[in-house]
Structures are given as structure tokens and as C-alpha cells.
Amino acid sequence: MNDKDLFEQLRSGPFSRDGFDENLRRKINDNLANPRRGAKRPSFLRISAIGASFLLIAVVVVALWAWDGWATMGKTEELAIPTSRASESGAVADEDDEANRVPHSAVVIGLRKDESSARSSYRTVVVASEGDRLQTVGSGEGIWMPYEQDFWQIAAEDDTLGKGDQELFAYLKGVKKKADLQKQGDSRLRRTEKLLYAGDHYVVTLQTTNVDEKGNSVGRSEVLVNLLPTLASTNRAANLNALAAENVSLNEALGVDLPAGTVDRWAVVRENNAWMAKQAIRANGTFDVEQVRQWPTIDVPLESTNVVKDKPLALDWEEVKRLEPDAVDAFTSQDGDVALIVSNDQIQLVPYRLPESERNPVTIDLDRNESIVMVQWAIQEKYVENWKKWFTEWFADSSR
């Protein structure tokens, strides 16, 4: 075909060969009915995606296994925590946390009643959370003090000579051994003891010796600080002067060097809503509890130590007075869910962070000349439940 013929065809209309034929139309329709979803990925990319999926599953499984392992280990460690750590919180207290506003603590309160200048009686009252409120578990004779894995009962025992003297003995779980008391009574020694303080590890005793082992009149008082087992009946029977022999200095109890040097004789006294260290004044003859309160205060904090487990009071005094206008002293649990407010004739335990209509405080009446020598808290649920169980049994046994 020459140029002239081609030109003639163009003038006459479309090409003689039909470019948009039936075959092309069918292919277009087929593609419209079954569109392509995209080009296939290379095989190595498909394998990588499968591997990533398996890797993700493996990571999740390992993470769950590790979480369970940590949780199990945490439970195992919790079961091994000694009783002396019952007041340590398992979580950081948050004032806005509902769980911390609801009472969840237990408290063991030790009380000393001075019946005369020489003799005293002691009792322990236990209050614990039950559901969302506080209730009194019970009360029993002596001071029931937690130490390491167990509780010990500190009891005031009359001398076997009937002279009116009184000494302190500690019994593991309250189990007394009469043979030890008899051995103690065989001595001519006559002395009277008062418990001034019972803490996390230590007890403070005002000891007045009237007659020594040889029968000589002495008339000498001293304050002694000891680890609780020093008062064990077996230990005291083996050494009549065990308290003096095993006295613990303030430096040793706190594990620090004090600027004033070693303080061998000291006491723990409640003052300004806190347990304070008092340095003994050397004096001839005898002295009483009120004179101990007047000793110089040692400028060293006792809170959060082996001597005093309590934290400082979580409330300001104005708020305490709003809760109880007649308050003279106050304590708070480590989680701040309960306030123990002391007035002249009673103790109130108040879940003060609840609305007033929901507080349902517990009240303990105080006798004349009765004062607090111990406040021990349990925060963790395991200990709270154990304390309720143990003291329900112990107090039931002691009342028979």
C-alpha cells in the first residue's frame, strides 16, 4: 500500500481491521468480574511473615510463664516473712485508693495497770478488720508481743514467798513451765519489775531490787533494755540477773554511733505522740515510772527501727482533735487506714478515712492508772487472718 492509498483510507473513516474486537472486550469483562488482589509476594517474604507470627506467640508464652514464675516466687517469699514484718505494707498507700480507705489492719494493744507503787497487772486487747469494718477479737491477761515467727506472752508473776514482789517472765505462745518458776522462787532475792515498753524486738523493764541473793536489803532501781527472749522463764531461771547481764545499749539497738557516745542505760517513753528515747540519770536508791518520764530526751528518732516499728503519726494533731476532742495521744497504722486515739478513760479505733457515717469505731474502756505499753500492727491480709485465728484460740484457752 502506497501513501496515496493510505491517505484515501484515512479520509474515508476507521481502519479496515477492527482493533476493539470481541476477544478484547471479553478479556476486559473477565478482569472487571475477577479483579486481581495484587501481585504475589516473593516466597521469602511469606516465610518471614510466618516466622514472625511464631516468634510473637513464643514471646507471649515466655512472658506468661515468667509472670507466673514471679507471682509464685512472690507468694513463696510472702509465706516466709516473719511475724515481726507483719506491719510492712505490701503496697504503697494511696489516699485516693478505696482499698486503703476501708479498714484492713489488725492491732495488738498492750496495757499496764498500776495497782500500787510496786505491783501492776497487764492485759492485751486485739482489734482487727472483718469485712469492711473493725471488730474486737478479744482480750487476755499479760502482754502478747510478736517476735520473729511467733507471739510470746509476758506475764507478771508473784514471788513464791508471798512478800508482794512481782517479776516478769516471757512464755512462747503463753505456755508456762511451773518448774522454772519454782527454781526462781528458791532464791532469797526479792525484786519488783514493771514493763515500760514492748516493741518489735525489745522490752524495757523498770527493775527494783529490794533484797539481794544473800538476803541483804538493797533498795536499788534501774531500767534495763533486753531482747524479748531474755525474759524467757528458762533463761531467767538459769541466771537470776539475766536482765542486767544482757542489757542492750541504745547504740547496739539502733546499730549506730551516737554523738554522745555509748548510752548503756536508757528507756522508751511515750511523749508528744511518739516513742522517745530517754537517758537514765544515775541515782542512788529507788525511783518510779513518773521519774523515768522526766529523764532527758535523747535526740535520735526511734520510728522505723528495731526498737519502734511504727511510722510517725499520719494525722496532724488538729485532725486528731476533730475526731476526738478529749484526745491525749494517738497512733496510726502503717497504711493509715486506722487511727488509735487515746483519751483519759478510753481508746477509740477509727477508720478515719471513711465518711463519718461509715466509720463504726471500736471503743476500749481504760481503767484508772492504765496506760499503753505496746501497739503492734498487722497490715498484710495473711497476718491479719492469722492473728484473728490465733488470738481467738489463745484468749479462749486463757479464760478457762
Rank of each mutant, 00 (worst) to 15 (best):
V338I: 15
D335H: 04
V342D: 01
Q334R: 08
L340E: 01
N344M: 08
S343W: 00
V342S: 13
S343H: 08
E318D: 14
E318L: 10
S333P: 10
V308H: 01
T332G: 10
S357R: 14
D326Y: 05
P351V: 12
D326K: 07
D365Y: 06
W317C: 07
D329P: 09
S357G: 14
Q348V: 04
L354M: 09
V308E: 12
N306C: 03
N360D: 10
P355W: 05
L349N: 01
E303F: 07
S357P: 11
E356R: 07
R359I: 04
T363W: 12
N306L: 14
E324C: 10
L366F: 00
I347G: 00
R368I: 01
V342K: 11
V342A: 08
I341H: 05
A339M: 06
N306V: 05
D310P: 12
Q348W: 07
D326Q: 07
L323I: 04
V338C: 06
P312Q: 05
E356F: 15
E356Q: 09
D337Y: 11
L340H: 04
V307W: 08
S333Q: 08
Q346F: 00
S333C: 13
R353M: 06
N306W: 11
E358R: 06
E303Q: 15
L313C: 00
V362Y: 04
P355Y: 13
E319T: 11
P325E: 09
Q348T: 03
D310V: 01
A330D: 00
P361F: 02
E324D: 09
A330P: 05
R322V: 01
A314H: 03
R353C: 07
D326T: 12
P355L: 09
P325Q: 07
A327V: 08
T305A: 10
V350E: 03
T305Y: 01
E303N: 15
Y352F: 13
L349T: 03
W317M: 15
P312M: 03
R322A: 13
A314E: 08
D326S: 15
D367S: 13
S304W: 12
K311M: 12
E324Q: 03
L349M: 02
V350R: 07
E356N: 04
E356T: 09
E356M: 12
E303K: 13
N306Q: 09
L340V: 02
T363P: 12
E303R: 13
I364C: 06
R353W: 14
E318K: 11
K309E: 14
L313F: 03
P312G: 11
V308T: 10
D365P: 06
D326I: 05
D335M: 10
Q348M: 15
T363E: 11
T332A: 06
D337P: 07
D345K: 14
P312N: 01
V320K: 02
K311S: 06
V362P: 02
D316Y: 14
K321W: 02
S343F: 03
E303D: 14
R359Y: 03
V342M: 12
L354D: 01
P361S: 04
V328P: 09
G336D: 02
L313E: 04
A339C: 10
P351D: 15
D310W: 02
D335N: 10
I347A: 00
N360E: 13
E318F: 13
Y352K: 06
S333A: 10
V350D: 06
D326G: 05
R353S: 00
Q346K: 15
D345R: 07
K309N: 10
A314S: 11
D365W: 07
D367W: 11
T332N: 09
V342I: 12
